[in-house]
């Protein structure tokens, strides 16, 4: 029955956003107030229906959202849905890289940390993990950028692809929104390399944050399973320690990792807002901060609603998957 909770959850999120956004007044005044004479402003407000009773507006907002209509941005007159789909792909791509970085760093080091529990490697790794998630992602990004692109010159400063690469992609008709796929479509290895080198620093900045969480989690679960009879039995059979860790101890630890990985979506999305801003990665987070600067609250509302709903739905899916994998998990 818990699965049905997704409906009220989404409803509450959507309502919260609406209530907060309207508490500031109408979006037209926010975006254009001071730029237009009051009578013109009033006309626009009337045309957009922001002078109607709040409940009528709320009902319209709900029905529109459920039919996939998020309105039109005020600052650049684009359908919000188009903004969401165009830039959502970029954010998804960044999130994938970041999760990859997090897994590659977090899982093996978490295993090492758990295995050497309370000894030096554990101490060092745990401090690093805590450092990773106590560091604001924009500060980490700033330092990475300073070291690897300004001082060492190994990676480009910002963006998702260089100008030449982008033109090559346009020529190849590659416009999936996923840069790496597009780069492969051009068939030019230089473009692929270009895209990857642009992705490296943002992926690491965002991935480090998550890696710290993964490391902690894997460590905890390693300690838990290493202490169970299952491992003791294997150990008594003469299974070597390395194999013990690799083959036996980590499997039971997998489910919670999936669960937490799902829960990291919220963190990834918020991290993405700050990472994308630092590295000019043109995704949803980047657009969000752009629209915030422009005080375009229709766009802000759409992006925030989407992010909140994505988080809620992911958590819900994780619940379902966990229940499927492990029948003991009941709701």
């Amino acid at each position: 029955m818990r699965f049905l909770l997704i409906i009220p959850t989404v409803f509450i999120l959507v309502t919260t956003v609406f209530a907060l956004m309207r508490a500031t007044g109408d979006p037209i005044t926010a975006a254009l107030g001071g730029k237009l004479p009051p009578d013109q402003l009033q006309q626009l407000i009337h045309a957009a229906g922001y002078d109607r009773p709040i409940l009528v507006q709320y009902w319209e907002y709900l029905t529109n959202i459920f039919s996939g209509d998020f309105g039109t941005t005020i600052s650049d007159n684009r359908p919000v849905t188009e903004v969401l789909t165009t830039y959502g792909a970029a954010t998804l791509e960044l999130a994938c890289y970041a999760v990859l970085v997090a897994l590659v760093l977090g899982v093996p080091f978490g295993m090492v940390s758990g295995y050497f529990r309370d000894r030096l490697p554990d101490a060092v790794l745990r401090i690093l993990a805590i450092l990773a998630y106590a560091t604001p992602v924009f500060f980490a990004g700033l330092i990475l950028k300073l070291v690897f692109s300004v001082w060492l010159g190994w990676f480009p400063v910002a963006g998702r692809v260089s100008t030449d690469g982008e033109i090559a992609m346009q020529l190849a008709g590659a416009d999936s929104g996923f840069m790496l796929i597009d780069a492969f479509k051009t068939g030019d290895p230089a473009v692929v390399l270009d895209v990857l080198s642009h992705a490296a620093l943002p992926a690491i900045a965002l991935g480090l944050l998550t890696a710290g969480v993964f490391l902690r989690l894997v460590r905890t679960n390693m300690i838990g399973t290493l202490g169970t009879g299952y491992i003791d039995a294997a150990r008594s059979r003469g299974v070597k320690e390395g194999r013990l860790v690799r083959k036996h101890a980590w499997r039971p630890a997998l489910i919670p990792i999936i669960t937490v990985a799902g829960m990291q979506v919220a963190m990834l999305l918020v991290g993405a807002v700050l990472t994308e801003t630092t590295f000019e990665w043109r995704g949803l987070g980047f657009q969000l901060s752009e629209y915030l600067q422009a005080r375009d609250f229709v766009a802000v509302q759409g992006i925030v609603v989407l992010m909140a709903v994505v988080v809620a739905v992911t958590n819900f899916l994780v619940d379902v998957i966990a229940a499927l994998i492990d029948p003991r998990v009941r709701y």
Binding site: T81, L84, T85, A89, Q170, D175, S176, G177
Partner: peptide, 17 residues
Amino acid sequence: MTMSAIRGSRRLIAGAA
């Protein structure tokens, strides 16, 4: 989200490409 993302950005560039 993925599929619609592809469609959305294709419309954006189709003319020029």
